[in-house]
Design a protein around this nucleic acid. Sequence first.
DNA 1: CGCCAGGACGCCC
DNA 2: GGGCGTCATGGC
Length: 273
Amino acid sequence: MDYYIKGSDIIVSEPDLDLDETLDCGQAFRWKKIPSDYECTYTGSFLNDCLTVSKLRDGEFLFHNVPENDFLSKWLNYFDFDTDYSELKKQFSEDETLAKACKFAGGIRLLRQDSWECLISFIISQNNNIPRIKGIIDRLCENYEGRFPYPEEFAMETEETLAYLRSGFRAKYLCDAAARVNSGETILGDIAAMPIDAARAELKKIKGVGPKVAECILLFGMYRTDAFPVDVWIKRVLSEYYPDGFPAFAKDNAGIAQQYLFHYIRNLQTAAV
DNA sequence: CGCCAGGACGCCC
DNA sequence: GGGCGTCATGGC
C-alpha cells in the first residue's frame, strides 16, 4: 500500500482492494454505497469514526477529507493495509478451489473491526439476512446520533426499550451481551488475547453466542485469522471440495481463506468456473 | 401464501 | 452428545 496527501484527502494505491467485495461481503454492516461522480463510493462508520471512500480506478482509492494522522492511526489498520494480500493469495492458490476463489474475488480484505461492535452485530446476524441485519443496526445507530452505542449505554436498554429495533428474539441476547461487557464479567480485550479454544468458550458464555457467532467475533472483531466460521455455505464448500479436510497450509489464515470461499460459493453461478 | 435468512436454545432421547 | 422444534421479522 502506498498513499499520498492531496489537499484534505488521502489517495491510496492498493491493488488488493475492491470496495464492493470488502465492504459489502457480510463482514461489516454499516457501509452504504452512495451515488457520486466516482465509479464507486461508500460511506460508513467504525464505532464513532465516519469515512467516505471512493474508487478512482482499479487499485486506487480516495479517502475523503481524512487527516493523515487519522489515516495512519485508524483506517490503515481497519483496512488491514499492513498485510500483503498478494502474498496470502499466492499461498492459498496452491489449492485448486482456493485459487479459483481468490481469482473470483481477489479484492476482499479482512477488516480489523471493533470487538464490541462485532459482538452486537453478529448476535443480530443469527438466522437473519444481510439487508435486515443492516436495517436493525441502522436503527440502533440512528438512536445514538449516528454512532455505535457504548457498552455502558447499551447496558441501560431492556427488551422493551429495544422494541424499535424489531430485532425479534435477539433482543434478550443483546441485553445479556451488553450487561456482561458493561459489568466486566466479559472482557473482550482479554478474550482477544486468549488461546483460541479458551476464547471460544468464553464468548459462548454470552447468551445468543454459539459456535458460528463466536467464530465471527474472533475473526472479524479480534483479527484471529485462524478462526473459521462455518455456515451453510461453507458447509457446502467443505463437503463438496474438501471431504478430507481443509488444507493444513492455510490453517493460520483459514479465516481469510474462508472469506474468499464464502464469496465464491455464494456467487458460483456468476463465477466463470 | 410458504420459504428462507452468514443460528442458538431448550428439550428430548 | 446428536436430532429437532422453536424463536421474531421481513423480503421474496
